[in-house]
Nucleic acid binder design. Sequence first.
DNA 1: CGGGTGACTTTAC
DNA 2: CGTAAAGCCACCC
Length: 110
Amino acid sequence: MTNQISKEDFFQRVYKIVSQIPYGKVTTYGAIANALGIKSSAIMVGWALNAAKNRSDLPCHRVVNRNGLLTGKKHFPTPTIMRELLEQEGINFIDEMVDLKRHFWKPEIR
DNA sequence: CGGGTGACTTTAC
DNA sequence: CGTAAAGCCACCC
C-alpha cells in the first residue's frame, strides 16, 4: 500500500501522536507502534521519544509501557516528574502503575 | 558492514 | 517476583 514510513516520517508521526494525547490520558509504546504500522518495534517509539525529549512541546510523561509502568521516568531530569505530572492530571495510580483501564488513550492511525 | 545499546514486548523457566 | 532470551529496528562507533 501507500503506507511507506521513512524514518523521518516515523519521528514526525510519533511527535504528532504524542502531542495529541489528551489531558488526563496515557498511551503505550506498543499502541503507538501499532498505530504507525511497526507494531513489533515498540522500542523504536521509545527511541523516537528519546530524540523527542529535545522538543519540550511533547508530553512524553503520558507515554508508558504495556503495564502502565513509568519505564521512561529514568530519562527525565528527575524521576519523580513523570509520576507527579500524571497525578496532577487526575490519573489514577495503582502502586507504580497507571490505571490503563481508565486512562488509556488509543492513538489515531494516519 | 559488524557490534553494542535501548524510554518495548512476549515467552519461558 | 526474578532473570534470560529472542524479536524488533534506528542510531552510534
